[in-house]
Amino acid sequence: MVVTTIISYLFLAVGCFLIVVASIGIIRFPDVYSRIHPAGKSDTLGQAMIFIGLMIYEGLSFVSIKLLIIVIFIFITNPTATHALVNAAHAAGLKPWEKGDDRN
């Protein structure tokens, strides 16, 4: 076991944890507007963590540059997609869940 391998496994574990938390959040939160929070944040960082872990495992090569491009791409598109989604929900007139309402 080299040090870089251990560091990369650490990143992979954190990324995995964040993705599982994002999935639980998408199931548990009460409405679209609050479900956007785990989908927009935890999913983005979890993915980025896994790709950074793979980058550290790989070392410097064309493969790790490709991984870096995917990470940058995800950091631009994922918040944009969630913003488009919540914008469409707002335009359709969905009311946000408020404290005290029922959960579904």
Partner: peptide, 27 residues
Amino acid sequence: GPTIYDRVLAANAIGTKTVVLIALIGF
């Protein structure tokens, strides 16, 4: 569901997980 936006959001989340999965399969 219950609304279409929940479904699209969840489908998008599955898609992002698939991207990670494809990269991992490559490794």
